[in-house]
Design a protein around this nucleic acid. Structure first.
Lengths: 117, 117
DNA sequence: CAGATATATTACGACAGTCGTAGTACGACA
DNA sequence: TGTCGTACTACGACTGTCGTAATATATCTG
């Protein structure tokens, strides 16, 4: 089965989450849905990974949390990206380009598309 | 700064090493030099990371080790890629394409340049 | 010759991030 | 009442990386 390995994503989970917070605050469950949808189902982040990322990023000052005012249901914790978070995000984007280029020096792309299996 | 984070490479160290073994067997020190050179100094793998990758991959059957016959100097442990290792390598290459596409959905590229390439 | 330097590998423990598992909590619907 | 979907938290295991250091040999330098 060829899914994507979360080992690769590892260094980019924070970036992915921050991307989804760029335009407006959001909360865990919604973000996980958005990741799934945007990746066309190819990447489904684990809940524990997601929430531990929130904790880490809040500690780092990349996001801040606040409570929504929904009255019913379990109370949501929303997260808003900070300026520091924005800066970090765009740095990671630059880093991605470099990293991608490095990795691709070691990757052989099959041009004759023999996709058996 | 602007190095590449090894967190990203994490899932691809094995792939990088296997790539360098595709054509001929090699050993730790040489591989680390090759990685440095091929990446134009952008990625220098840590020794411990490299040798622990050897151990892991040998356990997984992706490589086999043998001793070189050099008479002087410290004895080298050479590694040769196995068929299983080759298969794994090419799977990781395919996976890379998928993973790269997924990550790029969450990356904003500043495109002041041309859309060439 | 002694000491630094480059080559070449191994051992050990710390750490970060992910993941499995499970539990809490609430609303809605059948 | 029970289950499903939503929403979050706790905890411990595991894997891979990394810092540090030790071992071993050959070559270069003064």
């Amino acid at each position: 089965m060829t899914g994507i390995s979360s080992d690769v994503i590892r260094g980019y989970n924070d970036t992915i989450i921050l991307y989804l917070l760029l335009e407006e605050p959001s909360y865990g469950y919604e973000i996980s849905k958005k990741i799934k949808n945007l990746s066309e189902g190819k990447y489904v982040i684990k809940e524990t990974t997601l929430y531990s990322a929130f904790t880490r990023m809040q500690k780092n000052g990349y996001i801040v949390s606040f409570y929504g005012d929904e009255t019913g249901g379990k109370r949501r914790t929303y997260y808003r990206i900070t300026d520091s978070g924005r800066t970090y995000y765009f740095e990671k984007c630059k880093e991605w380009v470099l990293t991608k280029d490095v990795i691709e020096k070691f990757i052989i792309r099959e041009e004759n598309g023999n996709g058996d299996n």
